[in-house]
Amino acid sequence: MKKPPSRYTALATVPPKQIQLIERRLFLKHSLSLGALALLTGCDVTNVDAVQKTLWTMSKWNDRVQGWLFNPDKLAPVYPESAITRPFPFNAYYDEDEVPRVDAAKYRLALGGLIRDKKPWTLPQLYALPQVSQITRHVCVEGWSAIGKWSGVPFRHFLERVGADLSAKYVGFRCLDDYYTSIDMATALHPQTQLTFRYADEILPARYGFPMKLRIPTKLGFKNPKHIAEIFVTNVYPGGYWEDMGYNWFSGL
């Protein structure tokens, strides 16, 4: 009977010694990749320059992707009063006893950059602006989330009022607690982005950012600056406190 062409017979002609060698090579290859994987754990590999560069490049790429994904008309979900998280957590890069105490009478909001009317604002002037309320979810970059009620003037209204260049790329914030951050113009103009003066219908307490914060329900919590001292509009990337350390800049939700 004629032998059908079988791959097994073909393999059988390979000397066993050679097969052993091939298998050993594979085993070595495998151990090498295991070693490489072991090196990945811990923080060491993250600190290698080329790795750092790649990760930053990917983070910048993710900024662009998030810019495309961001739908300026899509509203963040809103919740009933009963869903509010009590107590609403305090969160900052410092402890609660280091929260800045701001003198309301002396406070002035400074404006800078591509804004037509840069005259500073007092608190009574800001409080006189038309205000709205929202109950939305604050999502922290750490993973936890909490629902709160914020009231203030829609940020778009304020930017239009002071003659900000709405075609500029960035809006930057400098804060009284030395925090700083910046956001894209599309998010600044989102209908739910709010210059906030009140929390739970009370004047914003110090721990939540007195005299004002920017509430952005379409961004992670650290993109919501508190104790704002200056707002500026620019086309030059302003970065941010956490962003300059490696947190993703766009951080949209």
Binding site: T41, C43, S59, N248
Partner: peptide
């Protein structure tokens, strides 16, 4: 989410920002 943490020595990224960079890359 639960009453335990993963040993940091087993994790990748060194700190939260580094871990997020790895995760989203």
């Amino acid at each position: 989410l639960f009453n335990f943490e993963f040993p940091h020595g087993l994790t990748l990224g060194g700190w939260l920002a580094g871990a997020l960079q790895w995760h989203f890359a």
